Amino acid sequence: MTEPAKAFVSVARTTLLGTATAAFLAACGADTSQGELSMKIFEVAKDASKDLKPKGDGSPDKKGGQGAANPNVIVAKALKATPGPVALVVRLDTKAVLAMNPVGRNAGYVTWGSATGQGLTFRNGVLANTRGLGEDLMSSRIDRAVSAITSRGNASYRREHVYLDGVGESQSLIVNCTLRRTKTEKVALGAINADAAIMKESCRGDEVVFDNRYWVDGRGRILKSSQWVSQEIGNLAIQNLRL
């Protein structure tokens, strides 16, 4: 595992801000105590994910709330100490935060890994499978989704997700999806600073309904996103700090 992935922060749900269990890249600052650093990491994660978590009406939360520690300070230190791409991933149901970086590439798919063994595989920024999260997305057929999302156009298509049931057998979930371009917004965090079109993907199957959102720049890169994994896990908020 390379240095950018040596981080994992778990935020307890039973406290106001929670307690972090590990520091994010010790090289980020020897003059900062582990507790202070952990709090800064949480603020970064909160800042990165607060407008990705759906509200009751299905639309993203607006930015606001009390002032927090400037996330750019810790992000700048992380980027200085960390070569190559790096991202923060927030599991929205538990507020667990992972720092991840690419650990493998194969035929257009890129796998990102964490120091604690979780893995996310993407195709052009669209989540294709997960490992180590629980009810993992084992595989998927998302070619039409990827093409539509990265080209930033309205579209309709099907997705197929594959999961393991209680006896280890593969079960397919097929959903019908619509993709709509909503508005343009600047994404600025870490080394990312670009205008992006917000693409809203709404999917429905026999027993499941979910929404995904993607901030896609003019080059077709997904700068940040909220992507659904499974009924147990829900959505992950994914904020790239450097691509």
Rank of each mutant, 00 (worst) to 15 (best):
A5V: 07
K6C: 05
F8G: 12
F8V: 10
S10Y: 10
A12D: 12
R13G: 09
T15Y: 06
L17P: 00
A20G: 15
T21D: 12
A26N: 13
S33C: 00
G35N: 08
M39Y: 07
I41L: 05
I41A: 10
L52Y: 00
K53I: 15
G56F: 04
D57T: 08
D57I: 10
S59T: 15
G67D: 09
K77F: 06
A78E: 08
L79R: 11
P85S: 11
G104F: 07
N106H: 10
A107Q: 14
A107K: 15
V110W: 04
T111P: 12
T111I: 06
S114I: 02
L120E: 05
N124P: 02
G125M: 10
N129D: 07
N129E: 13
T130R: 06
T130Q: 08
G132P: 05
G132T: 09
L133F: 15
L137C: 04
M138F: 11
R141K: 09
I142G: 00
D143I: 03
A148D: 02
T150S: 05
G153P: 00
G153M: 05
Y157T: 05
R159M: 08
L164N: 11
V167I: 13
S170D: 13
S170C: 01
S172P: 04
T178M: 01
R181Q: 13
K183H: 08
T184A: 08
E185N: 04
V187R: 06
G190P: 08
A191K: 15
A194H: 12
K200H: 09
E201P: 03
R204D: 11
R213Q: 06
Q227C: 11
W228V: 08
N235C: 02
N240D: 07
N240H: 15
R242G: 10
